[in-house]
Structures are given as structure tokens and as C-alpha cells.
């Protein structure tokens, strides 16, 4: 009797402790990011800028992509990502493959002292570095975007494939008094880039899809100064015209990412991004 009870218990444990999911249920549709539940403050919302340092020879970088894709599902448009190609070692391109390294990306990489990749920074806070499996990044983003924004940023980008020109309009509105000089940085990122990547479970993947890749910085590397009184209620509009000289960049796959930072410690106050809308 004892043996029967024991075997029954073990059988029940084995049966109950293993979930089986049918192939048509491996994934479920999502309605998109819920962000902070639609929490708006003073007409604006706080977004999170994640600068992710990556490289084609970095075997764990695809896992960082999964983490950020998943956080995108969770936080929607309130998460803004820039993927920056590490300049050396695992960041070096494979032979006959596109080179995603940029001058500005290298300068930022050196500023943060990036040694191993993948690595990420949240809102350019040097105390918030994430590596490997990006532990705590999700919860830190969640905490950040629930804060009241001190400044709001809106971006519009219109592109012309014939002239390869992008007209950018940036407007910002200050909600809380600012504590120092600020700068505006605009970056061009590109999605759906297909090139070789070392992958943790699939070895070398020739057609790996890279998103949010930094292609160029439209302003100065460390941003353009914004003359401001820094008082609540102040609003301004700035216009930029940028010509994409690299023929490999597909304008229709690009975003213009903007962020406003304090000039002294480069910490980001708020950010936003806009897809390049192609005028037919």
C-alpha cells in the first residue's frame, strides 16, 4: 500500500510539474505596450532612453535584443532604444559585412568606458549600467517612466527619398524649473538591417535582423546647446535639415531619436523618437 501511495505521488508530481503548449499557442497576440497605464502628467509623459552597446561578434547580444524587444512590448513608445556598435573586439564587423561603427557611437562608448558587450545605459545615468541578461533594466524603466517629466519633447521627421533629405521639427516644453544648461541631441537610427551576427543558440546567423542601429548623429555628438531660461512654462521650436549621405541607409526604415540632457553630467531629462515619414 505504501509503495502504491509513493508511486502515485511521484506520478502525480511528474504529471503536474510539466506544462505542454500546443504549437498554435506558442505565441499570443498583444495589443501593444501599456506603458505606464496611460499616465500623463502636465500634458507630457516621461520616456526612457536605453543606449545598448552591441556587436556582430558578440554572442550574447541577441539575448539583449530579446530583452529590449520584450520591454518594448511592455512599455511601448515610452521606451526609446539606440543600438550602438562597439568599436573594437566583438564590435568589429565580419569580412564583407556592413560596418555599423560610427564616430559618435565610438565617442559615447569611450565616455561610458564600455569594456564588455552587451551593455546598456538608462538615460545616461552612469550608475545605471546593465550587462549580460540586463537584470533590473525592466524595473528601472518602469520606475523612471512613472515619474513626472520635467520637460516634454515632440519630434516630426519628413523624408524625401529623391533628395535624401530629412526635415526635422523639434518642439519642447518645460514643466519644472531646470537646474542647469541643457543640450538637444538628435540621432538617426535604422531598423530591419540584415547582416551577420553571432548567435547564442544558432551559431553564425547570416541574415540576423538588427533594429535601432545608430547610423549618424544629426546634431553635435554631445548635443546642441539650447538657450533657455529653464523656467516652467517655456516652450520652443527648433528646425533641422539633414541629408543622408550614406547610400546604404533606407530612409523608410529610419527613426529620428531626440533627447534633452543636462550639459554638465549628460544625464537625460526626456527623450522621444519619430519615424521618418516619406513624402511621396
Amino acid at each position: 500500500m505504501k509503495k502504491t501511495i509513493l508511486l502515485g505521488f511521484i506520478g502525480l508530481f511528474c504529471f503536474a510539474a510539466c506544462d505542454k503548449i500546443e504549437p498554435d499557442q506558442y505565441t499570443v497576440a498583444t495589443s501593444g505596450g501599456s506603458g505606464n497605464g496611460g499616465r500623463w502628467s502636465n500634458g507630457g509623459t516621461q520616456c526612457a532612453l536605453v543606449e545598448k552597446y552591441t556587436g556582430p561578434r558578440c554572442v550574447n547580444c541577441p539575448n539583449a535584443d530579446v530583452t529590449l524587444d520584450s520591454l518594448h512590448v511592455q512599455y511601448g513608445e515610452q521606451l526609446v532604444v539606440i543600438s550602438i556598435n562597439h568599436p573594437t573586439g566583438q564590435g568589429e564587423p565580419f569580412p564583407n559585412q556592413p560596418d555599423m561603427r560610427t564616430e559618435a557611437g565610438t565617442a559615447w562608448d569611450q565616455y561610458f568606458g564600455i569594456g564588455a558587450i552587451p551593455a546598456a545605459y538608462l538615460n545616461r545615468n552612469k550608475a545605471k549600467q546593465y550587462s549580460g541578461s540586463m537584470d533590473n533594466l525592466g524595473s528601472d524603466i518602469g520606475a523612471l517612466i512613472n515619474q513626472d517629466p520635467s520637460i516634454e519633447l515632440t519630434i516630426n521627421a519628413d523624408g524625401d527619398t529623391a533628395t535624401r533629405q530629412i526635415d526635422i521639427t523639434v518642439s519642447y516644453h518645460i514643466y519644472d524649473r531646470l537646474e542647469g544648461d541643457i543640450t538637444l541631441t538628435l540621432a538617426l537610427t535604422e531598423d530591419s538591417l540584415s547582416y551577420r551576427q553571432l548567435h547564442p543558440s544558432r551559431g553564425i546567423v547570416n541574415d540576423y535582423i538588427h533594429n535601432h542601429m545608430l547610423r549618424d548623429v544629426i546634431t553635435d555628438t554631445w548635443g546642441d546647446d539650447i538657450p533657455t531660461d529653464g523656467v516652467a512654462g517655456e516652450s520652443k521650436v527648433k528646425n533641422f535639415t539633414y541629408t543622408v549621405t550614406n547610400p546604404d541607409i533606407k530612409l523608410q526604415n529610419c527613426h529620428v531619436v531626440g533627447f534633452i540632457s543636462y550639459k554638465n553630467d549628460r544625464s537625460v531629462l526626456n527623450c522621444n523618437q519619430a519615424p521618418v515619414v516619406i513624402n511621396q
Partner: peptide, 26 residues
Amino acid sequence: FVSKYEEDETIAAEAAGHILNLPLNV
């Protein structure tokens, strides 16, 4: 026989607009 239990989490699938339906007990 060994089983692990882990809470659910959001993991984006490769198919756009989809997330993984994760087995909690493996």
C-alpha cells in the same frame, strides 16, 4: 524527474505584435 517553476514574464516573439506563451512548469 526534475521540474522547475518560474513565474510568467513578457518575452517578445519574432512575429510582430506577439509575445510568448511560456510554460511555467518545465
